[in-house]
Simulated assay, not measured.
Amino acid sequence: MAGPDDASGDLPVIGSLVVPAGALGWRFSRSSGPGGQGVNTADSRVELFVTPLELPGLSEHQRQRLAARLGDRLVDGVLTVAASEHRQQLRNRQAARERLAAVLRAALAPPPPARRRTKPTKGSQERRIEAKKQRGRLKRQRRSWD
Rank of each mutant, 00 (worst) to 15 (best):
M1S: 11
M1G: 12
A2F: 12
A2D: 09
D6P: 05
G9P: 13
D10H: 14
L11S: 07
P12E: 11
S16Y: 03
L17A: 12
L17V: 15
V18R: 13
V19G: 01
A21P: 01
G22R: 14
A23R: 13
A23T: 06
A23Q: 10
L24H: 09
L24S: 08
L24I: 03
G25N: 12
W26T: 06
W26M: 05
W26C: 05
S29F: 01
R30E: 05
R30Q: 11
S32C: 08
G33P: 13
G33A: 06
G33W: 02
G33D: 05
G36T: 05
G36N: 04
G36I: 09
G38D: 11
G38A: 14
G38H: 13
N40V: 13
D43S: 04
D43W: 07
S44I: 04
S44F: 02
R45I: 01
V46L: 02
F49Y: 09
V50K: 02
T51D: 08
P52C: 14
E54Q: 15
E54D: 15
P56E: 12
G57V: 11
S59Q: 00
S59H: 01
E60M: 04
H61P: 00
H61S: 11
Q62V: 03
Q64S: 15
L70C: 09
L70R: 06
L70Y: 12
D76Y: 04
G77K: 12
T80F: 02
A82M: 14
A82E: 12
A82G: 08
E85S: 15
H86W: 15
Q89I: 10
Q89S: 10
Q94L: 14
A96K: 11
R97H: 03
L100K: 00
L100F: 06
A101L: 06
A102W: 05
A102D: 10
R105L: 04
A106V: 05
L108P: 05
P110N: 05
P111M: 03
P111D: 12
P112I: 01
P112Y: 03
P113F: 06
R115V: 05
R115S: 04
R117D: 10
T118Q: 14
T118A: 15
K119G: 03
K119F: 10
T121W: 11
K122I: 00
K122H: 09
G123P: 03
S124L: 11
S124P: 04
S124V: 07
S124F: 06
Q125W: 02
Q125I: 12
R127L: 12
R127I: 00
R128Q: 09
R128H: 12
I129D: 00
E130N: 13
K132T: 08
K132V: 10
K132N: 07
K132H: 09
K133T: 04
K133R: 15
G136E: 05
G136D: 01
R137G: 01
K139Q: 10
R140V: 00
Q141A: 12
Q141T: 07
Q141L: 13
R142Q: 14
R143Y: 04
R143M: 10
S144F: 08
